Simulated assay, not measured.
Amino acid sequence: MEETDPLRAAREMRRAVLGDAYVDGVTADPDQAGRDFQDFITAMAWGAWARGGPLTPRDRSLLVMAMTAALGRMEEFRLHASSSHRAGVTDAEVDELLFQIAAYAGAPAGVSAKRTIKAVREAREEARR
């Protein structure tokens, strides 16, 4: 994909929220099609984050977590839940989000999200030790 200012901004936002280690890992694909796919994901999804507007990175993080939980995409939910602090989301806000997920996406989505949050927090505590 052509290197443009919007793509650079999207890459910077992705790194700021998900961290260098994660981004380096998923973008190091030796396959050109894999690299092209990552550029597409970066431009599409992270371009929406980098474009500015009235939603803050915190708002966007909460929305992504709510949508991925509602869709049952727990791998993506875990990724964003693990990184949400970099976007300014507090544990208390995530706890409240779980109620919204359960109320609007159903109890199974809420329970899965709660389990994932518990595992994310346990891993975070283990890393601190």
Rank of each mutant, 00 (worst) to 15 (best):
M1H: 09
E2C: 07
E2H: 13
E3W: 00
T4R: 01
D5N: 11
L7E: 09
L7S: 10
L7Q: 10
R8A: 15
R8S: 14
A9N: 12
A10F: 00
E12F: 02
M13W: 05
M13Q: 14
R14W: 03
R14Q: 02
L18K: 10
D20K: 12
A21M: 04
A21R: 15
Y22M: 10
V23F: 06
D24C: 00
V26T: 09
Q32N: 03
A33M: 11
A33G: 05
R35W: 07
Q38W: 13
I41V: 15
A43F: 07
A45G: 05
A50S: 11
R51L: 08
R51F: 08
G52N: 03
P54K: 11
T56W: 03
P57Q: 14
R58E: 13
R58I: 10
D59S: 12
D59P: 01
R60V: 03
S61M: 07
L62P: 04
L62K: 08
M65I: 07
M65Q: 08
M67I: 07
A69G: 10
G72N: 04
R73D: 14
R73E: 14
M74W: 03
M74K: 04
E75A: 14
E76I: 11
L79I: 08
L79R: 12
L79K: 09
L79G: 01
H80C: 06
A81P: 00
A81F: 00
S82P: 05
S82V: 09
S82Y: 01
S83C: 13
S83F: 07
H85T: 13
H85S: 14
A87T: 08
G88V: 07
A92N: 05
E93L: 11
E93W: 12
E93D: 12
E93N: 12
D95P: 01
D95C: 01
E96R: 14
L97R: 10
L98V: 08
L98N: 00
F99V: 11
Q100D: 07
I101T: 04
I101S: 04
I101R: 08
Y104M: 08
Y104R: 04
Y104V: 08
A105V: 00
G106R: 08
A109Q: 06
V111P: 00
V111D: 00
S112Q: 15
A113L: 09
A113V: 06
A113K: 03
R115T: 10
T116P: 04
T116K: 00
V120A: 05
R121K: 11
R121H: 12
E122Y: 06
E122W: 09
E125V: 11
E126F: 08
R128L: 13
R128S: 12
R129P: 02
R129D: 09
